[in-house]
């Protein structure tokens, strides 16, 4: 992918669908991811937004950051709102009413809106087969309300409602696997992405939106405020999440798994954990537990993927610094 890095930006539109001038924290990985996701799309898109960081930073009466038709109603319902928009357009078009051709519907929400409170509405919309894309911008906690744990918060992370203390090492549950839950609905397209791999992210969002029927994209979005990490390392953290196997990049197209990056070996998870304050309390034992779990989960995805050659064996504990982290 690196060899295209100089050329590819020239193919990208200058137009911003998510404009500058919003009120995100400095170094916000989610705002970056949203900008990239919608830069990948044309202006024939209607956005249904869940309550959360992106909704709050990008809207305040009478202003908006969006150059697209945009609707926010509640926290847990953007998938259902998107269902209604899609159905409305379908019916109006069929009945000969004047609506723009080829209008796409994209629902977006954070990890809380997606894997906790809005899970039922997402499942319903995916199951009903609406032609829409759901994008989860996952920053691994309820950041908008002040860094409370969600079911997407990783094991061992300290948040304000899963604090580390004498009796606790922080979050004691493993991150809910939303992409796999989405894939279990047998929808035509599921993908994971992160802003540290921008062209991959844009290509996947584009593909998701162009796919007829429901599509789901899960985008890891680094939150330096909530992760207690340096604001100038968000893309580095994003890439480390991939290179350590913590957040594998893959696609599931019509049930066929495909890894997006061929990693000869994984870097140790410690490289990813050590630059984030939310993990600073973790003992070596706990880090090893995370290492083991990451390898196990990564192996599962690898086994499902049909394009990974046998030489790409997962080895977490060695060959650390060799994988590229630009």
């Amino acid at each position: 992918m690196e060899k295209y890095a100089v050329y590819v930006p020239r193919l990208i539109k200058k137009r911003e669908n998510f404009a500058p001038g919003h009120r995100a924290c400095i170094g916000c990985g989610e705002a970056l991811a949203v900008r990239l996701a919608f830069k990948a799309l044309d202006n024939n898109v209607i956005v249904a937004n869940a309550t959360g960081c992106i909704e709050i930073i990008a809207s305040q009466l009478p202003f908006t950051t969006w150059h697209l038709p945009w609707i926010h109603t509640l926290f847990e319902n953007p998938a259902a709102v998107a269902s209604g928009i899609e159905a409305g357009y379908k019916a109006m078009k069929r009945k000969g009413m004047a609506v723009p051709e080829n209008t796409k519907v994209v629902a977006i929400g954070g990890d809380g809106a997606t894997s906790d409170i809005g899970l039922q509405a997402i499942s319903g919309a995916l199951e009903r087969g609406h032609d829409f894309t759901y994008i989860c911008f996952d920053n691994e906690a309820y950041m908008n309300t002040g860094i409370q744990r969600s079911s997407a918060t990783p094991f061992g992370a300290a948040t304000t409602t899963s604090p580390a203390g004498k009796q606790s090492f922080g979050q004691f549950t493993w991150k809910k696997n939303m992409p796999e839950i989405a894939a279990a609905h047998n929808i035509p397209y599921v993908a994971t992405a992160t802003h540290g791999y921008p062209f991959d992210l844009m290509a996947k969002v584009r593909k998701a939106v162009d796919t007829p029927g429901p599509a789901y994209v899960h985008i890891l979005s680094v939150c330096p405020t909530g992760w207690r990490s340096a604001t100038d390392t968000v893309n580095r953290q994003s890439r480390l999440a991939v290179q350590t196997g913590v957040f594998p990049l893959y696609e599931v197209e019509n049930g066929v798994y495909k890894m997006s990056i061929d990693l000869p070996r994984l870097r140790p998870v410690k490289d990813y954990l050590k630059i984030q304050g939310r993990f600073r309390h973790l003992s070596d034992d706990l880090i090893q537990q995370i290492q083991d779990r990451v390898e196990l989960e990564y192996q599962k995805i690898l086994e499902k993927a049909n394009n990974v050659t046998k030489r790409a064996k997962v080895k977490g504990k060695t060959g650390a610094a060799k994988a590229s982290a630009r």
Partner: peptide, 17 residues
């Protein structure tokens, strides 16, 4: 829809469209 919450949410979307 899969619930009344989603029924009214879908109605919001469709009416807004």
């Amino acid at each position: 829809v899969e619930s009344e919450h989603s029924a009214m949410s879908a109605c919001l979307g469709s009416a807004a469209a």
